[in-house]
């Protein structure tokens, strides 16, 4: 496959570098399917989130903050991650990404396969993180309703090209977007 163009983050070239390099430059990526360590405990998963910034120091500082958003995690820190419910796993993946104190949080299809109430809960927390901590979040999401409500800017991709982009409040009013993605 021919590739061209470049990927840069905060002035640093990432093109051609592996995902580990992207992580070290401050990007936390929650992949589709969550990418948890199913065999490790909740706590060990969180520790892995801290790895990139110096595990011991970082987990001690960041764990209390994360437990404020997800109180159940503290009580169940020794549970094997693979035995959590789908929604809990998505929250753990999110929490693990937060522990690394990212400059950019990327969420790939966070609503996939989850009950609507869980999706609401996750997006509520993401919005809070953005509002309180000023965390930059990039979400790829099929559920346009939820995504447009949470985001300040939005882009519609069609076959890999940006078809429409702009302020998400305006996008919600856009007739094409409304008909094709919001369903009214």
């Amino acid at each position: 496959m021919r590739q061209s163009g470049e990927i840069a983050f905060a002035g640093k070239q990432l093109s051609g570098a592996g995902p580990d390099k992207a992580a070290r430059s401050g990007i936390a990526h929650v992949p589709e399917g969550r990418g948890l360590f199913a065999e490790l405990s909740v706590w060990e998963n969180l520790r892995m989130g801290a790895y990139v910034r110096g595990e011991r120091r970082t987990i001690r500082r960041e764990a209390p903050r994360v437990f404020e958003y997800f109180p159940w995690m503290e009580r169940r820190r020794d549970q094997q991650a693979g035995t959590l419910s789908g929604g809990e796993q998505q929250m753990l993946a999110l929490a693990r990404a937060l522990v690394s104190r990212p400059r950019l949080l990327m969420l790939d299809e966070p609503s996939l396969g989850l009950a609507p109430t869980v999706v609401q809960e996750i997006f509520r927390i993401v919005k809070e993180l953005n509002a309180n901590d000023g965390l930059t979040v990039l979400v790829v999401e099929q559920n346009a309703n939820v995504a447009l409500e949470a985001a300040s800017r939005a882009y519609v991709l069609e076959v890999g090209q940006v078809a429409i982009g702009g302020d998400s409040a305006e996008l919600r009013k856009h007739e094409g977007v409304r008909k094709s993605y919001l369903g009214y």
């Binding site: 580990d20 070290r24 990418g35 360590f37 790895y51 690394s100």
Partner: peptide, 8 residues
């Protein structure tokens, strides 16, 4: 794969 995402 997940380990790479953690910066390992």
């Amino acid at each position: 794969d997940a380990s790479r995402l953690m910066g390992v």
